[in-house]
């Protein structure tokens, strides 16, 4: 019998209001240990508020959350003791050098004096920051600062790492580099990660499990593949002789959610039970000439966009 990992984060009806606004609205989550958990949502969805609630920086207006077995309301200090966080801003002291920044947080987390230097080196070297450790952080690029902030969050070997949009504001190359290095570090350190992002490619690449939130409410949760499987299949049929009459025929078939003509191609959105072969045969019978049929599942982005539209 498979034994599932114990939940490292559990929320029950977690709610936080600001005046009339429900920033987090009855959130029920269970996140097993060892997962990279992606928390996806548009701006203002409640992602940052959720992190603040989980770290015990804000008190919930309703419901409860336990993180690493500690109640965030009554034992927030223990949650923070065993967690690392890279929040909305990198939070680095820009007048200080990278080494001083890490030395300060190493002292904060009581990393043993003798081991401190080794630990700092072990984190900075793979990120390519070791040689510039003595420079004031103010002179660094945004990408380098984000990497340093990730290193700081991992300094004390936390069991749980909160990352609030770690690649936001980075150029695509810097974001991809950070993403790769983050993945490597997280695997090496064996830490559970709670990652908020609105970069869906990032979530798809890094996360073993994702949740989608909008206006504080949880819309979906599961493995990215599960979410994609729940979404419609897309088929693109390339060829000649497609007409509105052909489209009308296709639209009438069971399982066809949507059929459109785009740049001379028929683009189909198919339900779970739809089979493509009879549709292709129908198109051929109606006079169409089919050159290529390409069928794929929707991306996480498609799932996300569908969820956002459904909730509009």
């Amino acid at each position: 019998m498979a034994v599932s990992a114990p939940a490292i984060i559990r929320t029950e009806g977690l709610t936080r209001t600001f005046g009339d606004v429900r920033a987090v609205d009855g959130l029920d989550l269970e996140i097993p240990a060892g997962t990279v958990f992606g928390f996806l949502g548009p701006n203002g969805a409640g992602k940052t508020t959720t992190i603040r609630l989980l770290l015990g920086l804000l008190e919930p207006s309703g419901g409860r959350a336990t993180v690493l077995g500690f109640d965030t309301r009554s034992d927030a200090a223990s949650v923070r003791e065993k967690s690392g966080a890279l929040l909305e801003h990198h939070g680095l002291y820009e007048r200080l050098s990278a080494e001083d920044n890490l030395a300060f947080y190493a002292r904060v987390w009581r990393v043993d004096g003798a081991a401190r230097g080794e630990r700092i080196r072990a984190l900075l070297e793979p990120l390519g920051l070791w040689d510039r450790r003595g420079e004031p952080v103010a002179r660094w690029s945004r990408g380098m600062k984000q990497k340093l902030a990730v290193a700081r969050a991992l300094l004390h070997r936390p069991s749980l790492l909160f990352l609030d949009e770690p690649t936001a504001g980075l150029d695509p190359v810097a974001a991809a580099t950070l993403r790769d290095e983050l993945g490597t570090l997280v695997r090496r350190e064996g830490v559970t990660v709670f990652l908020t992002t609105h970069n869906l490619a990032e979530a798809e690449r890094l996360c073993g499990r994702v949740a989608v939130i909008k206006q504080g409410r949880l819309l979906e949760v599961g493995h990215p593949d599960e979410l994609k499987a729940r979404s419609a299949t897309r088929a693109q049929i390339t060829g000649r002789g497609f007409s509105d009459a052909t489209l009308a025929l296709v639209r009438g078939r069971p399982g066809v959610v949507r059929a459109e003509l785009q740049n001379g191609r028929i683009v189909l959105e198919l339900g779970q039970s739809a089979d493509t072969a009879p549709l292709v045969a129908l198109i051929v019978q109606s006079g169409g000439q089919v050159e290529e049929v390409r069928k794929d599942k929707g991306s996480l982005e498609d799932v996300f966009m569908t969820l956002m539209e459904e909730e509009r």
Partner: peptide, 14 residues
């Protein structure tokens, strides 16, 4: 002002 406060508050420091 320099956006370092929240990270400090999210640490284990009492």
């Amino acid at each position: 002002e320099r956006h370092t406060l929240e990270t400090l508050l999210a640490s284990r420091l009492p």
